[in-house]
Write a protein that binds this DNA or RNA. Structure first.
Lengths: 241, 241
DNA sequence: CGATACGTTGAGCGAGTTCAACATACGTGG
DNA sequence: CCACGTATGTTGAACTCGCTCAACGTATCG
């Protein structure tokens, strides 16, 4: 939950008064084991979930068993604001690891945020960032080579984790097997392994079961066609609005 | 502009009173020629544009000249609601054909829609649909073969055009060269041509300079792993909220 | 210490790319 | 209305990146 607060503060300077509203909202906690489905395809959504521990994934499963992971939801991320119009999910949301979620009623949540201009802005910002992440994913799988995709993706994970943890480190925890990377990046497991080996041999990064250590961020950024500035929010002068 | 109205009515039953507010909003018209940039990378956005004629595209251009088209904006589509928090564009928005746009001030627009619960819901729906389109694009380029991508994309264009035109036809106008398809689908121009030839030889579709004629929708849907139901909104009981 | 899941490596294959030539449509000026 | 130049689309041949299948390592956890 601190990650969530850190995240919205990264976009808009919400004060304790704003946050108080959120903290007082009725919520429950749900825990899921790896592989469990949280929201199924076509299920109506009327709750809002905040990830507090573990990794969640959005994915589409094709008839012949192929899977495309659309994106990962990390601690501090939430889903699905679209629920407020009563939409149904067009994809599955699944626990990638053991996951702890804080769950709100979507309408409660909406009413709470509408009371605060700053909170509402913060949520718009997070929504804008989500879309940026989706667009980046399209560029990755559409036009980047396997090595570029991996490098780019590692950098994105690193950036997102830095925002929600508040710490800028060169280690990217990766609590899921490479098969998940493969399904996210539109590659085969084998080729993910080979591409990582190739990046290691260039001394750009180091891998372990725990995650990936970024050894040469600058060269990695160049190889990945990754422009960190694209993802940084530009401060909003709320007072001026 | 009728396409725009048809589109939001497709999601929520907005009445003439709601629409009246929109029609009275101060707006201007802008015209762009093919290839002209409408919004550049990193440009602050403070306007809301509705496409009234022609095709617009969102794209990211990589350093070495590669281009990934993120999606197309067709008549009735609008961009960019994110402007209401003063975000900057993380991609370029470019006229694909000669384009006519209706332009609003983002803040004016926001105030107008906030007055009507139905209008606000309608815009949420459109935003939800946009995200669905982005997710679908990720699945396409991530896990579908070239033929599947093309078939899937044609079906999506057909669905979107049907909603905004109000007519369900089997002809999909395509006012851009195949190179645009290639950059949207993460393929080479040559392979787009070959894949289309292959689809033609199976009597699934027919092509001309004007667009694509769907000859066997059912088989095309099967080949494309395309589930039309995923994109249909489920009626919302607004009264119940 | 063994079972099991995960990661790595090799060999062969195949979908999609590149380069190049050719074909067809289209717009413009004569 | 034709003639030409340019855009776009098609086809062939060679190549390459990433895939599949299969075997073999190596963590990890009871």
């Amino acid at each position: 939950m601190e990650q969530f607060v850190r995240r919205i503060k990264h976009y808009v300077d919400v004060g304790d008064a704003d946050l108080h509203v959120l903290k007082n909202l009725r919520s429950t906690t749900e825990v899921y084991q790896p592989g469990q489905t949280i929201v199924s395809l076509n299920e109506p959504v009327d709750k809002l979930y905040i990830v507090t521990e573990g990794w969640v994934l959005r994915a589409r499963y094709l008839d012949d068993g192929r899977r495309q992971i659309i994106n990962f939801l990390l601690p501090g991320d939430y889903f699905d604001l679209m629920s407020i119009v009563g939409a149904r999910s067009d994809h599955s949301i699944v626990a990638a690891t053991t996951v702890r979620l804080t769950v709100f009623d979507a309408q409660d949540f909406l009413r709470a945020t509408q009371g605060s201009h700053r909170l509402a802005s913060a949520f718009w910002w997070v929504t804008v960032q989500e879309e940026t992440i989706l667009r980046q994913q399209i560029v990755r799988v559409g036009r980047l080579s396997a090595r570029e995709r991996i490098a780019n993706f590692i950098l994105e994970l690193n950036r997102r984790q830095a925002i929600s943890s508040g710490r800028h480190e060169d280690f990217v925890p990766l609590p899921v097997p490479q098969a998940f990377l493969a399904d996210a990046l539109g590659l085969s497991i084998v080729h993910v392994s080979r591409s990582l080996t190739s990046l290691k041999s260039k001394d750009l990064l180091q891998t372990s079961r725990k995650g990936i250590e970024i050894l040469d961020r600058q060269r990695l950024i160049e190889l990945a066609e990754y422009n960190p500035a694209l993802f940084e929010p530009h401060p909003v002068a709320l007072a001026a609005q």
